[in-house]
Design a protein around this nucleic acid. Sequence first.
DNA 1: AGAATAGGCAAGTATCCACTTGCCTGTCAA
DNA 2: TTGACAGGCAAGTGGATACTTGCCTATTCT
Lengths: 96, 96
Amino acid sequence: MDDVFRAIADPTRRAILDELVDRDGQSLFEICSRLTMKHGICSSRQAISQHLDVLQGAGLVESRREGRFKFHFLNRKPLEQIARRWLRAQPRENNS
Amino acid sequence: MDDVFRAIADPTRRAILDELVDRDGQSLFEICSRLTMKHGICSSRQAISQHLDVLQGAGLVESRREGRFKFHFLNRKPLEQIARRWLRAQPRENNS
DNA sequence: AGAATAGGCAAGTATCCACTTGCCTGTCAA
DNA sequence: TTGACAGGCAAGTGGATACTTGCCTATTCT
């Protein structure tokens, strides 16, 4: 769970998640070019690849290799748990 | 919004939020001792104070000074927006 | 008044992390 | 089969950041 928070702390990784929401199953180069086009992010291929590793390590992204391509898929489950961590219970007022 | 993600990236700050969910309006020393007791976090008072500054900068915590005490209150609104960023739309499959 | 309590400020340190750089492997097309 | 394409590995670097250290202010209690 710690990995998930660390993963979404970086704005480039959040942009990657946004891109996968828009279109699931992209390859590394697709993601790179879309980040440049739509988000103005001009990081190198290697940088994005490392970001994808972090996202995968956090369970937010899964990947499948096909030939020379590697496709990346979004996994929402860890994000759903984040949402519920602090938003369920109402806090007790401190009356002491 | 960037500040919010950076703020919740740190495990100690997440523990502080957990503590404020459990009991809103705690002072700095209350938070320090509770972190030690319940979370095994043995950071110094200054460290926790700096964490509270970060949380406040992100709008996750508000504070009110009364005499020599400063009470800290949780603000859930930024967290609600996080939850809704990636969980609304279903991603389109890549059929190309 | 004097001591203890609650907290603040600022500089220094050490670690972490995003990114680069250079080179390598595997796949497909001409 | 040769070159272009898609991606991987690993070491190095610079900047961010969590934490410490030392000292200071303000408030409350005895």
